[in-house]
Design a protein around this nucleic acid. Sequence first.
DNA 1: GGTTGTTATTTTTTT
DNA 2: AATAACAACC
Length: 762
Amino acid sequence: MPVRTTDDQADYLSGLNPEQRKAVLTTEGPLLVLAGAGTGKTRVLTTRLAHILHNRLAWPSQILAVTFTNKAAREMRERVGQTMGGAIEGLPWLGTFHSIAAKILRIHAELVGLKSSFTILDTDDQIRLLKQVIEAAGIDSKRWTARYMASLIDGWKNKGLTPDRLGADDGFTFADGKGVEIYKTYQDRLKVLNAVDFGDLLLHNITIFQKNPDVLKGFHDRFRYLLVDEYQDTNVAQYLWLRLLAQGSNNVCCVGDDDQSIYGWRGAEVDNILRFEQDFPGATVIRLERNYRSTEHILGAASGLIAANKDRLGKTLWTEDDGGHKVTVTGVWDGPAEARIISGEIENWASKGRSYSDVAILVRASRQMRNFEERFIQLGLPYRVVGGPRFFERAEIRDAHAYMRVLNSDTDDLAFERIVNVPKRGIGATSVRKLQQAARTMHISLEQATRQIVKTDEIRGKARSSLRAFLLDIDRWRRESQDAKHTDMAERILDQSGYTQMWRDNKDAKSQGRLDNLKELISAMGEFDTLEAYMEHVSLVLDVDSGPQDAEVSLMTLHSAKGLEFPLVFLPGWEEGTFPSQRALDESGLAGLEEERRLAYVGITRARELAKIYFAANRQVYGSWQSSLPSRFIDELPIQHVEVESEANQYNPSLIADRVQEDFGRSFKRAQDAGRSSPGWERYQKNRDRDFGRQPKEIEGHAVRRPAKGKASNYSVGERVFHTKFGYGEIMSADGTKLTVEFDKAGEKMVLDGFVQRASEV
DNA sequence: GGTTGTTATTTTTTT
DNA sequence: AATAACAACC
């Protein structure tokens, strides 16, 4: 159906390139938009929404728009508003998969045997509940951990598998085949508790749709247009959910980038996006390949890297921005040095009049942030951790929530159990076990069982009187909450229960912070009209909307950086084992490696002007020092887009700079030896003398030792050597340039010969 | 039942 | 290295 372009449409359509415009105007039928990094994806999405609304193709309430994160949902809402020129009414069905599924489930809860007031359990509750189920089944919960079972169940739920769809052999990896049994029991327990976990939200939706065609039909009639962001991150359950809903209007538009699929560990199936045209026959596919974000070098480096992946739909990003700096690669001595050098670069940037908020440091794992935080605090450099430890996952917040949950429901066993002895009331493990036993035999909730049991002599003495007092408190709070404001109520409960006093009495340095958090909690609650509205918010929205940003450096993981961009991006820790992460490799093999590579691709493409990569020769892992090798991803960067920097301009040793630079050279050599070839390899070989082949220098009287390139080390077994981190040791064996050294203090380590000196020469 | 000392484990990533 | 879970002890 051709859509007329009127004058006022030109308003929002102008400034779009032809592909973007087509993506906006193709409103009817299935559409897949393959949007590479920085190609204006969000703009297309929001313009498309605005276009549909503007032309009255649908009312806001007839559009289903799903995103992956709350941040993305928020941003889309804002930007649609802007494009439409101010306030738009509603868009009630714009949100994350989970929040929309929860909304639907609240409406139709009874169809899966729940009450619409069901609680949403977080991971912690889930694991505690599973632990109970496992122990009740007489299984050793140390040998077979609840955490492991939880990951199995999550995996099944992500695949859309309810217990009855699993075969007998599916749970065999848990407790000799009891896995499925546990899953079943767990689901039964959830139903009794009137609770769901995250995976259930989608799964129950699917069950409802499949078993109640009339209900599904209702949603078909409602949703005229469906929009999905980050389609490459959807799992099977989300795909099934979407396909069921899309059967109505068939107007489903999915936007994504297979090269940015980085949530495979959470059940995301890149396959969903690769298969789109089969799944939705007659689909239009549009590729957005023009990049508006980064320079040619940044794009070139990223594209060269990602080209090493197989199984791609394949895109060629291009830009008209052909100036710019090459991506830099810098070797450093260790983690602290990395933080020191990067801080220096940041201050340098700031001294040129640029803002701290232009800068981001993207790490693979959050533990890498520590070095940076320490350094930044020392320097007084303003920074903020994005993502970070979640406010709502802190113990004191979860305790406070448990009080609220008990207030709300006398069947929330998990919440009751959590706080029955917090603060300490003299109700120990033995009493709690008795309560649980009573609840189980009488088939009632813990709280109800407690009410029964205090009438008997089953529990005596202090425990009994405390329980009585506790129940009376609960009764009183429930009465009072009828007409008190929910925030006042929360304050009162935390006070009267002795919870705040507990932290005031605690001498730990952190307890003041906890009290502050509780205050913050009260004010967060104040932003909602009712307790229920607030509780729904906290269970689904894990991030707190942080206010306006000051000029601060952003420190975050690569995962949370997706969708963001910064003029200057630092990418530290590009070492084998750290990035790609050893664990990803061990657990998922080649698929894991490719996902790590996509993560690297995401990292580089966050940069607008400058991307700076670092690797350290030594890193502390779980408390002990390990020498590390540069990441294979460094080898894979096309050399024409890369510039090797040295640490020489830092405080002292160009000695180290030479070594790491030498090591970098060897890293390329390794790549070749391993039969890998990178696009820049030929070029690199021609240039290697210029780039890396500097002659050893005499520094402060010490000869810098270099092994002959690619040949055996010139150290021999049995020699005594010195290593600045590990101290003295004896060479046990040598494999090329890699030495196995038995250090006197540090034990046996594998080190590169470039990092040791002969003991006799120290 | 509560407290203290010891041991085992960790997050990589998040709705 | 830091923490949580756990065991022995008071």
